[in-house]
């Protein structure tokens, strides 16, 4: 007994050291990689065992998606389709067909407010919003013409040959609104196959949380304040979910005191006006992305009616900075004071 007492200081210090190591080893360590892909900032945090390569694989997949769906890249599949699909049917890879058919379904689902064929209209506004064509707003006739081309009916998919063609010239597909959500869905697949317990995928503002939070109750996802730096509130989530936000503050140009931004109403042909931002919380990233874009175009009343009818969770911010909720979103939301 005396001997034990003699070595007591060493025993105490040793156990304190062990305790420190235990604290460090208690959970799988998060590791974050960051990169630019799909024209946006990507951040992938996985909680994993050492030497796991899931993050790298996800990033590789994002870059692969970019090489297919970036319509401004001359080597991409979508560029090829947009350029030649009227002249002759273009063979498309299954991933392209997959996203195209899903997007068309979502277009019907949102009653046309999300439109994957909105390319011509985007091109009309792109120069204005990027500030290349500063003084002039597009001519109303040009906008009207672009609307008439931007119809999903003009897309013809031949499922048997895996080919796509356009019924009229000038049709242009634009997956910019949904490719990030689609990418997050695919990232979740990779995580599942790799047996990763938990992860956070940030694909340029479309956030996917995967699994349960690490040693705490909630994943905390901040929602960007639409009119100033910082967040307007935090979403507390307990399990796998994709959060997607569309807002008029992302890419815009103010001309004559009016804000012209990159989210276009496919029916009027002009940037949407009624809402500042729409955040959708759903298990499906593609749906989150498409619906957040669509609700921006629907406006408050129609948007809320639509979201309630489909029982989707959404957070809508109107110009008076009031926050509207549908589904159970209010119970997840915690305003930033």
């Amino acid at each position: 007994m005396r001997r034990i007492f003699k070595y007591l200081p060493l025993i105490i210090l040793a156990s304190a050291l062990l305790f420190a190591f235990w604290v460090n080893k208690a959970e799988t360590k998060p590791e974050t990689i960051r990169d630019i892909a799909m024209d946006t900032f990507i951040e992938i945090t996985t909680y994993h065992q050492p030497r796991d390569t899931a993050s790298e694989e996800i990033l590789k997949d994002f870059k692969y998606l970019e090489s297919i769906f970036n319509r401004y890249d001359e080597n991409s599949v979508v560029y090829d389709v947009n350029k030649h699909a009227f002249e002759k049917p273009i063979s498309i890879p299954s991933i392209f067909e997959n996203l195209l058919t899903e997007s068309l379904k979502l277009s019907d689902y949102t009653e046309g407010h999300f439109n994957p064929a909105i390319g011509p209209l985007v091109d009309v506004w792109r120069k204005v919003i990027k500030g290349e064509d500063i003084s002039n707003l597009p001519d109303i006739n040009i906008v009207k013409e672009a609307i008439s081309i931007s119809k999903t009916e003009n897309i013809i998919i031949n499922e048997r040959n895996g080919q796509v063609s356009f019924a009229i010239p000038g049709v242009s597909l634009d997956f910019g609104a949904v490719v990030k959500g689609f990418a997050v869905d695919r990232a979740f697949e990779i995580l599942k196959n790799k047996g990763i317990e938990r992860a956070v995928i940030n694909a340029g503002g479309t956030i996917g949380v995967y699994g349960s939070p690490p040693g705490r109750k909630y994943w905390r996802i901040g929602i960007q304040h639409p009119r100033k730096e910082g967040i307007i509130g935090v979403l507390n989530l307990t399990s796998t979910m994709v959060i997607s936000t569309s807002g008029d503050y992302e890419r815009y140009k103010i001309i004559d005191g009016k804000r012209y931004h990159h989210l276009l109403n496919p029916f009027t042909g002009y940037p949407t006006e009624e809402l500042l931002s729409v955040t959708i919380i759903n298990k499906n990233g593609l749906l989150s992305d498409a619906v957040s874009t669509a609700v921006m175009s629907m406006g408050l009343e129609k948007g809320i009616e639509f979201l309630t009818q489909k029982s989707l969770m959404a957070i809508i911010i109107t110009p008076d900075l009031k926050i509207h909720f549908t589904g159970d979103a209010e119970s997840l939301f915690q305003p930033e004071l």
């Binding site: 945090t45 956030i207 905390r220 996802i221 901040g222 929602i223 960007q224 959060i243």
Partner: peptide, 9 residues
Amino acid sequence: GKYIDGLTH
């Protein structure tokens, strides 16, 4: 600011 896992925008 307060800790968040991600920022949606």
